[in-house]
């Protein structure tokens, strides 16, 4: 089963996402900010990254462009979890190399059905 890196500074949302993913059998690596995520990404092979945008220390956009610099993350889907569905946000994400976005709040079913489009 795929390994998913979940990055969010809000523990409650992260827990919900992690719980949902684990229930579905995915392996999950957690990080509370971009910096932590980046160091974990260097250690573990991930098949998908789900990251919040607004986070302390390193935000999701920067994380995304940093990840794309790693050879092992060249093709890895990176989804941004965002509260705003603006085209400006999407543009920023796309420029950083994001694969797609998920607009918060979302329920576990949406999350899982959306994931199927980018991860096996």
């Amino acid at each position: 089963m795929a390994t998913i890196l979940v990055v969010d500074d809000s523990a409650s949302l992260r827990n919900m996402v992690v719980f949902t993913l684990k229930q579905r059998g995915y392996d999950v690596v957690e990080a509370a900010d971009g910096q932590e995520a980046l160091s974990k990404a260097r250690e573990a092979v991930c098949d998908l990254v789900l990251t919040d945008v607004n986070m302390p220390i390193m935000d999701g956009i920067l994380l995304c462009s940093e990840l794309r610099k790693l050879p092992s993350f060249k093709f890895t889907p990176i989804l941004m979890l965002t509260t705003e569905n603006s085209s400006e946000m999407k543009q920023k994400g796309r420029a950083a190399g994001a694969t797609g976005w998920l607009v918060k709040p979302f329920n576990p079913e949406t999350l899982l059905s959306t994931l199927k489009r980018v991860v096996r």
């Binding site: 489009r117 980018v118 991860v119 096996r120």
Partner: peptide
Amino acid sequence: LMTGNEPILM
């Protein structure tokens, strides 16, 4: 492919 999207999954 470089954006992480995967046609086969779509």
